[in-house]
Design a protein around this nucleic acid. Structure first.
Lengths: 94, 94
DNA sequence: TAATTTGGTTTATATTATAAACTTGTTTAT
DNA sequence: ATAAACAAGTTTATAATATAAACCAAATTA
């Protein structure tokens, strides 16, 4: 009746991050922080979890002299996101 | 950009319970347990939280000689559920 | 009458989410 | 030149959460 919701995606901030990356395919830490309104600490932790799960990749470099963390969604991440959205619908359809 | 998700509804089991009650307007504990696949303990706790929040009401009685807990969604609960669904869409739309 | 089942509730535990505090380096002001 | 403020994160402490295990009372069954 109700499909299982991937607990890694069923989190407000991680879902927001994934949502941005589904649309953009590339976003840096600062952009994600502004787009989601999250604190840097929280964002850092959630990016780690998504990376460990293999849902996104992180590329650390510099933009001028400042550190820059670029995030991208993986094929697995995209598939899992789509499955999550599909599972959610089993809870929302009246 | 992203709408805030009511943390009370953003929980797999509570969302499932609300989803049942949106469609049924009345369901007892046993039905909810079977429909959601939850353990009785977990369901009991989550029903309490939804009740405390004013999202559902609980009516305790008997069905024959056995105790029966009937749950119904409130107007507030229905409104909040609809707002939650709406907020969720801000995360899902591509 | 002992064991099992039913319909729950309470409580213990492990996981999570989150912000505060911290780090490393850069830019700005004095 | 040096101190103060800022930028881009990371680490860690804490509070909240989800969940199942353990429990209870009454009814049913063996």
């Amino acid at each position: 009746m109700f499909k299982k919701l991937d607990p890694l995606l069923h989190s407000e901030l991680r879902l927001a991050v994934m949502s941005v990356l589904v649309n953009l395919e590339e976003a840096d830490f600062v952009y994600l922080r502004e787009a989601t309104g999250a604190t840097a600490g929280n964002l850092s932790v959630q990016i780690d979890k998504l990376t460990t799960a293999g849902y996104i990749t992180v590329e650390k470099g510099f933009k001028g002299k400042k550190p820059q963390t670029i995030c991208r969604i993986t094929a697995t991440g995209l598939k899992t996101f789509e499955e999550y959205v599909d599972a959610l619908k089993s809870y929302l359809n009246q």
